[in-house]
């Protein structure tokens, strides 16, 4: 009986996770596309060169800079915002999993999920 309840909870969790992932990808693709239109409209006729590597300007490398660029109406900022949404999608899935395992009183997996979350936060925000 306990196992059946757990399986049902698991399936409910699976459906929510599925919807969460799909919504994140669609939102990201929409924001990236609109940023792309702005960018191509303004810079489409310029020349490009990706054969030599230059790091991106700082404003396109972190959350606060990207938001600043987006509000300044920059296409490249908007594209990066969409990419941030995309990167945040699996992170949101992990956050949701922490709560789902907590609701099942599954301490072992709450701990495992928190470790993964800590690694992700370090990657995005750490020094």
């Amino acid at each position: 009986m306990k196992r059946i309840v757990r399986n049902l909870l698991d399936h409910e969790t699976e459906i929510i996770i599925g919807n969460l992932l799909r919504a994140g990808v669609i939102a990201a693709a929409a924001v990236v596309s609109s940023g792309g239109i702005v960018y191509l409209f303004r810079h489409g006729q310029a020349q490009m060169d990706y054969s030599v590597f230059h790091r991106q300007p700082e404003d396109l490398c972190d959350v606060s800079g990207i938001i600043k660029q987006t509000f300044a109406g920059r296409g490249r900022g908007l594209i990066q915002l969409g990419l941030l949404i995309l990167i945040a999608t699996p992170v949101a899935r992990v956050v949701f999993s922490v709560f789902a395992f907590a609701r099942q009183k599954d301490r072992l997996y709450v701990a495992a999920t928190l470790i993964v979350l800590a690694i992700l936060v370090y990657s995005l925000m750490g020094k």
């Binding site: 990706y50 991106q56 396109l60 972190d62 296409g75 490249r76 594209i79 941030l84 699996p90 990657s123």
Partner: peptide, 16 residues
Amino acid sequence: AASAGIYLRQGYIDPG
């Protein structure tokens, strides 16, 4: 996502 965070902050992800 774990490595993308590092790449983004290091300026490897070119929006264009």
